[in-house]
Amino acid sequence: MVVRKRKPNKEDSSMFIYNNKTIFNKITQVISGSSLDKITKKYQGDFRSQHFDTHSHVYSMLSF
């Protein structure tokens, strides 16, 4: 049985670039942005916080 390698086309390379991200990076892209900012403002998540804000807390909990 002969296995032939096919040439990678443009679609394959773009799919590889998209899927070459870590799971942590994909999750933080979904969470970061306006959605986390809206929730933080709505529930006053950063009220009286001095150094450890809501974004840092979410990312640290995701890394465990």
Rank of each mutant, 00 (worst) to 15 (best):
V30R: 05
S49F: 06
E11Q: 08
G33M: 03
R48S: 10
S13T: 11
S34F: 03
D53E: 02
R6Y: 09
F64P: 00
S14V: 12
S60W: 00
Y18I: 07
V30A: 10
V58A: 11
R6C: 05
G33P: 02
D12S: 09
S63Q: 07
S60P: 02
Y43N: 06
R48E: 14
Y18A: 15
F64A: 11
S56A: 15
D53L: 12
N19Q: 12
K5I: 09
I31W: 02
H57N: 10
T40I: 09
R4H: 08
Q50I: 08
Q44H: 10
D37E: 13
H57Y: 12
K38L: 13
F52N: 07
F64E: 07
M61C: 12
Y59G: 04
Y43D: 04
L62G: 06
K10G: 01
H55P: 01
H55C: 04
Q44T: 02
L62K: 01
K10R: 10
K42I: 03
N20P: 02
K41A: 15
H57P: 00
K7Y: 03
S60L: 15
K38F: 13
D12K: 03
I17D: 08
Q44A: 11
S35P: 00
N25M: 06
Q29A: 08
H55V: 14
Y18E: 13
T28A: 09
D37Q: 10
K26P: 01
S56W: 00
S13N: 06
